[in-house]
């Protein structure tokens, strides 16, 4: 039977795993101009998942640390997947502003430029990330379908604008 002090210790170790995860997130996203948002939420999920995993698997602080590291990633992936399938249109607002996890680094770079400039065309995207127009179209299409960008205008001159939070 686990007691409160032990539980607090496991939560603390889970939190430690979450801090490492947040720091890795900052390091990964820094170059692309993103600031990882909702870091506090990551830390809460890390603390809870760390403690929960340690209780369920083994009351070992090491388990709490690795569960704290991996827990937020799993929860985020499941949540985004569910939001995409169940919430439909709510997906875009649910994910706007957060560092996306399943788009490529190339798309992340293009998205960062779109956010900085307020929008991006297919040609600008291709030049920015160094790909062909065809690939740029495909990347932007994925970002649009994923709810990260919305199209304004038609044809080659169409500007792809980042979806703002709350819309």
């Amino acid at each position: 039977m686990i007691v409160i002090p032990e539980l607090l210790i496991l939560i603390a170790f889970g939190l430690f795993g979450g801090i490492v995860r947040v720091l890795l997130g900052f390091a990964k996203s820094y170059e692309y101009g993103f600031v990882p948002q909702r870091a506090w939420l990551t830390l809460i999920v890390a603390a809870l998942s760390g403690a929960l995993a340690a209780i369920l698997i083994a009351e070992d602080p090491k388990v709490a640390v690795i569960a704290g590291l991996g827990g937020p990633d799993m929860v985020e992936a499941l949540w985004r997947g569910l939001a995409r399938r169940v919430a439909g249109g709510a997906y875009a607002s649910a994910t706007a502003g957060a560092v996306p996890i399943w788009i490529t680094n190339r798309q992340m770079k293009g998205l960062a430029v779109a956010k900085r400039k307020g929008g991006i065309t297919v040609k600008q995207y291709a030049e920015t990330v160094g790909v062909s127009l065809r690939t740029a179209e495909r990347d932007i299409s994925d970002l649009t379908k994923g709810g990260y960008l919305q199209v304004k205008g038609k044809g080659r001159a169409a500007v792809h604008v980042p979806v703002k939070k709350g819309k």
């Binding site: 890795l24 990964k28 698997i57 083994a58 090491k62 388990v63 690795i66 590291l69 991996g70 799993m74």
Partner: peptide, 29 residues
């Protein structure tokens, strides 16, 4: 760690997941 049975398998799976995640992140950096 000193674990046996299902707990060991679960812990190994979790460690595999996190290890792959961290290595991939460091690799990208």
């Amino acid at each position: 760690v000193n674990m046996t049975g299902n707990a060991a398998l679960l812990a190994a799976g979790l460690a595999g997941y996190v290890g792959a995640d961290v290595v991939e992140t460091l690799y990208k950096l």
